[in-house]
Amino acid sequence: MTSTSLESQLVIGAVLFALGMIGFLTRRNLILIVLSTELMLHGVSVNLTAFGRYHGNPQGQVFTIFVLTIAACEAGLALSLILTLYQRRKSLDVYLWGNLGEDDLPVFTGGGTAQQTKPLDPNADLPHLTPAGRAPATPATKT
């Protein structure tokens, strides 16, 4: 076991983390977003095991096991959420889910068009909020 090996593995972990982050930020497919987070977790796991090896104790691996557990939980929940979302919009496009944004902003499509141009009444099941930064409509507004 050498120090160089540790540093090399840390480099690999950092690269994997960065790649996962790019994936998370750029992909529009809900499933690929979740997978990108898993890639980031891999980077972390590599780091943990490398340190465990370096220090000669099992704690790095123990933590990796916990990471694995949480990743499994996350994957399960994410999958069920994705399925629910898919059922609503019949699409895995994350851009169909911008309801929290300001109503009157032009839809940001990131270069392409949302597959489902007219969603099935996207706000039907959500409370309608007054957009921030605009005066609420009152019956008698001052001229």
Binding site: F24, I33, Y95, G98, G101, F108, A132
Partner: peptide, 12 residues
């Protein structure tokens, strides 16, 4: 305001 566009990736 455009920052607050409701898409998770913008927030991330």
């Amino acid at each position: 305001r455009p920052i607050h566009n409701g898409f998770v990736q913008s927030y991330a």
